[in-house]
């Protein structure tokens, strides 16, 4: 998106005259100074409260610290990958049900989709962690975090898939039906393969949401990146530095996934369909 953004951003202004150029330079200097002052204030606050002391940062020089965080990260990847796979399957199934043309089935699928899109993933996680055990259903921490994250994603994915199916030209379906393919074959052989290709960038960007949702794994005591970070906090008695480092790791990972999705979208010319762009009803 950034290449397009730049052009529109810059198109808003005419080529600047000498006066505007001067004003822009002054504005640049003033804003740069303000940013520097802001940064300096932040660093000063860290310094006076002793948060820059070596004891809060020295343990990041030890390989064991990073190994432990890496272990947590592997846990995050495991949960995110499994949740992604489950939500893909569920998402396709829900989309097929919703577009099946069978009224009761479509209605049920719609209710399920709206339910999972309209409920916070934290509530689903608490349901698997606190609710299900009261009725005798117990599972390991891995599944207690993976299943709710997958369920929350499946509702959005069903809508993403539906948008993908709708983006396949109508003529394709008509042509397939006219040469005698059954509606089922038309869906599976003609429409779905093309729809899947269209939504690949959207699926990748949805992965960010899945990774974000896995961060509450500490609720079920599953050792993911955040949970291992919390353990590091207790062992090293350092809150600020560890939380900052974990946050930066998450930001970088999600940024990378987002950039991948954007570059795939640009290369294939298919838009990124997400929760924000789709129709809310």
């Amino acid at each position: 998106m950034s290449a397009h953004t730049m052009s529109m951003r810059d198109a808003l202004y005419e080529a600047p005259g000498p006066r505007t150029k001067r004003l822009t330079v002054i504005g640049t200097i003033v804003s740069l100074a303000l940013v520097c002052v802001g940064l300096a204030l932040v660093v000063r606050q860290f310094y006076v409260t002793g948060q820059l002391d070596a004891k809060y940062w020295a343990f990041f020089a030890r390989p064991t610290t990073w190994l432990y965080l890496l272990n947590g990260f592997v846990g995050t990847v495991k949960v995110a990958a499994m949740a992604a796979v489950i939500s893909l399957v569920l998402g396709v199934l829900l989309m097929l049900a919703r577009t099946s043309g069978i009224k009761p089935l479509a209605f049920v699928a719609r209710v399920i989709i709206d339910f999972f899109r309209g409920v916070p993933s934290l509530l689903l996680i608490y349901f698997f962690y606190l609710g299900l055990p009261t009725v005798g259903i117990r599972m390991s921490p891995f599944w207690m975090i993976t299943i709710p994250v997958a369920l929350a994603a499946s509702g959005v994915l069903a809508e993403v898939f539906r948008a993908g199916v709708n983006a396949v030209p109508k003529g394709q379906t008509e042509a397939a039906l006219s040469i005698g393919l059954t509606p089922g074959k038309t869906m599976f052989k003609i429409v779905l393969p093309q729809a899947l290709r269209i939504v690949i960038p959207s699926l990748i960007s949805q992965l960010v949401v899945v990774v974000k949702d896995t961060t509450v794994a500490y609720v079920v005591s599953y050792p993911d990146l955040m949970q291992n970070g919390r353990v590091l906090i207790t062992t090293n008695d350092a809150v600020v530095s560890v939380y900052l480092v974990t946050a930066v790791i998450y930001i970088l990972v999600n940024y990378a996934i987002n950039q991948l999705s954007i570059s795939m979208a640009r290369r294939s010319g298919n838009p990124i369909i997400s929760r924000t762009t789709e129709n809310p009803t």
Binding site: V208, K212, M226, Y243, L244, Y250, I251, Y255, N258
Partner: peptide, 10 residues
Amino acid sequence: NIPGVALLVL
């Protein structure tokens, strides 16, 4: 890009 919980704990 930051997860909600990661920001909340900060």
